Simulated scan of single mutants.
Amino acid sequence: MDKPAPHYHGHRDRLRERFKAQGATGIQDYELLELILFRAIPRRDVKPIAKALLHRFGDLGRVCAADLDQLCAIEGISERTALDIKLVHAAAIHITKGQVSGRPVISSWSALLDYCRASLQHASTEEFRTLYLDKKNRLIADEFHASGTVDHAPVYPREVVKRALSLNATAMILVHNHPSGDPTPSQADITMTREIKDAAKPFGIVLHDHLVVGRDNIASFKRLGLL
């Protein structure tokens, strides 16, 4: 005699049908996580795991941006499952970068902001990146320069400008995040930005902006009158 199917099989089918019919509309974060976990964990009720992930990290974005070790610390999450979760974050970054690459970033500003959010919004430590642009303001490279603590990442203006010269870049946009969630530039941010701008000027390299990525918003030095 066949054993009855586990109770969660019907739940999985219903959730898949809802997603098929509605997409992400009306689907909660824990349900989206369940959909991600279904393939990685085929023989277990994954709703408690999804809720444990959200309880630990706060929201879906932070779950997907968490380190592998942090994800594997959750009961029920293997390294394989953690990698599946990380793939979602990687896909989001690649999709948003694709909307920027090969286009003048100044005229694709909203797409650029989406890319910065996907890359840095949920990082747990401060990270500093530079977007190097050609003479048509197209993205040449997005390069990571430094990571640090929850409130500081060491940046060396000379290295930023040296890399711009090696790439034949004519313009730059600086980007970093504030893990605290508040994108308000600090005095250290302002000082460092001025140093980079001054170091780049003799070489004809323009600093278009410095973007600070917070939890919900992005602060622009240019809009704030700091450039």
Rank of each mutant, 00 (worst) to 15 (best):
H176G: 01
D84G: 01
A171H: 06
V175T: 07
R117T: 06
P157V: 00
V161L: 01
I95L: 10
D69R: 15
L139T: 07
V100L: 03
R103F: 01
Y132F: 14
A188E: 13
I196N: 06
E75T: 09
C116R: 02
S166G: 00
I218A: 01
Q70I: 00
A153Q: 09
V100Y: 04
T149K: 03
V213T: 05
T184M: 06
L60S: 11
I49T: 13
T25R: 14
H11K: 14
P104L: 04
G26K: 04
D69K: 14
G98Q: 09
C72A: 10
R12A: 03
G26R: 02
A66F: 04
A111E: 12
L165V: 02
L226W: 09
D29P: 00
I93P: 12
W109V: 03
I36H: 10
A50N: 07
R158W: 01
A164W: 03
K3F: 15
I93L: 10
D189K: 01
I218N: 02
L37A: 04
L68G: 08
G102V: 02
Y156T: 14
V150K: 15
D84M: 10
L60H: 07
A52S: 10
D69V: 02
K47D: 11
S124L: 02
L226K: 04
A65R: 11
V206Q: 14
A141N: 07
S119M: 11
D209I: 01
K97I: 05
Y115P: 05
H178C: 02
A146P: 08
T184Q: 11
R43M: 08
L60K: 09
E127W: 00
L113Y: 05
P6C: 06
V161I: 05
D69F: 11
L131D: 01
H94K: 15
L35G: 03
F128V: 01
D189L: 01
A219G: 07
A153M: 05
R16V: 08
R43K: 12
T193D: 11
F57G: 07
I106G: 10
K3S: 12
D114S: 13
H210V: 09
E79F: 03
P48V: 08
M1L: 09
F19T: 06
A65D: 15
R62H: 13
A82G: 07
L53M: 14
I173Y: 04
A65G: 06
D182I: 02
G61H: 05
G214E: 10
G102C: 03
N177V: 00
A141K: 15
V88N: 08
I190S: 09
A123D: 11
N177E: 04
G225P: 00
P6Y: 05
G204S: 11
P104D: 13
T149S: 14
K86V: 12
I85R: 07
P185R: 08
D209R: 03
G23T: 09
T184I: 04
H178W: 01
I205Q: 13
D114E: 14
A92N: 13
V105M: 07
H9L: 13
D45L: 03
E195M: 12
W109Y: 15
E34T: 07
H145I: 08
K20L: 09
I140V: 10
G10K: 10
H152W: 13
L54D: 14
